[in-house]
């Protein structure tokens, strides 16, 4: 337990350091002191930049990262499969489809209807995955189902955006499939927060039952775990957290895959201990990626998905290789 506290403490410190870096990174160059002063006083154009542009971006990076890390860890615990990740199994893509349909149907991008539509899309994605691959599916079935759902949702998203009367909507395909936190505002933070919080609460409450489930279904049932309730908590929680994150930041892949993978060694196999660490780790990873995209191309909106795939794809390949070797 003390080891856990130390790990969580250092992860929190990492998140804080990266948050500071995120606040101080951007095309409007300002020194460390000027930046912190402007953030404190809110005065002048730099004050506006820090308070209205960079602060919401940083907060959103933490929230989105925590949602994705947490959902990845919970889904992996529930499906007992290290490859279960919201991006890979198509939840993010179907959430993006839900959000896009709502926005094109006339819901304001800052209305609560968009995260709820994304939740609806995400639930559709989960239902398809569980229907296609089933709970006891091996890694291959899950990934194949994920490919199908992702492809379908991605194609429908592109179709809806191409049918929009707005010529710029088609340019948004990149945003919805790769994710970005550029030019977000406090409005987006407030839009995503309620549903995201609900998702976090649901996933946090699933922790103990997931521990029991790691011993096998029968064992868990004999320990008094209500498997139907657990499924509801994990599926709804992950769909809510990922849906809300996707509604404001687009589909960001690999976070839920990389973070639990990196942290599992430190916390052992217990899902309840992995969950908080994965939330903090996800926040740190998305913050780092969001700082990196601004360092690489400060003037342009390089998508987060690019950075995440650069980190995530090798991890993913390694996991597949290990799964195959283990068989």
């Amino acid at each position: 337990m003390r080891r856990d506290a130390r790990l969580l403490g250092s992860l929190a410190a990492l998140v804080a350091a990266l948050a500071l870096a995120s606040l101080l990174t951007g095309p409007a160059d300002a020194g460390l002191r000027a930046g912190i002063e402007a953030l404190w006083t809110g005065e002048g154009p730099l004050g506006i930049v820090l308070r209205e542009i960079r602060a919401p971006r940083t907060v959103l990076a933490i929230m989105v990262g925590a949602s994705l890390g947490l959902s990845g860890a919970a889904l992996q615990g529930y499906l007992r499969n290290p490859l279960a990740e919201p991006g890979l199994i198509g939840i993010s893509a179907s959430a993006a489809l839900g959000a896009v349909v709502a926005i094109q149907a006339g819901v304001s991008a800052l209305a609560l209807g968009v995260p709820f539509a994304a939740l609806g899309g995400a639930l559709g994605g989960v239902a398809l995955i569980l229907g296609l691959a089933g709970r006891r599916a091996g890694g291959l079935g899950l990934i194949l189902g994920g490919i199908a759902v992702s492809a379908l949702a991605g194609a429908l998203t592109a179709l809806v955006l191409n049918l929009s009367p707005n010529p710029f909507a088609a340019y948004d395909i990149m945003f919805w499939t790769m994710g970005s936190l550029a030019d977000r505002s406090w409005g987006h933070v407030l839009t995503a927060a309620p549903l995201m919080l609900a998702g976090w609460v649901a996933l946090a409450r699933a922790g103990r039952d997931l521990d029991a489930l790691s011993l096998g279904e029968e064992a868990a049932a004999s320990m008094g775990v209500n498997l139907a309730r657990l499924r509801l908590l994990v599926v709804l929680g992950a769909a809510a957290a990922v849906g809300a994150a996707t509604a404001v930041a687009g589909a960001i892949g690999f976070v839920g895959l990389v973070v639990p993978h990196l942290l599992r060694g430190a916390v052992g196999a217990m899902p309840s201990r992995l969950l908080p660490a994965a939330a903090l780790g996800g926040a740190a990873l998305v913050l780092a990626a969001d700082v990196a995209v601004r360092l690489i191309l400060p003037e342009r909106d390089l998508k987060l998905g690019v950075m995440m795939a650069l980190v995530g794809a090798p991890v993913f390949l390694h996991l597949i290789w290990r799964t195959q070797a283990g068989r």
Binding site: I48, V49, E52, I53, I103, Q104, G106, S108, A109, S164, P165, N166, P167, F168, A169, Y171, D172, F175, D183, S185, W186, G187
Partner: peptide, 18 residues
């Protein structure tokens, strides 16, 4: 333009009002 796009969301960013 009619319909919505994320590309145009930046036109209503609260930083501009400040």
């Amino acid at each position: 333009y009619p319909g919505a796009s994320r590309a145009e969301e930046v036109l209503d960013h609260p930083a501009l009002e400040r």
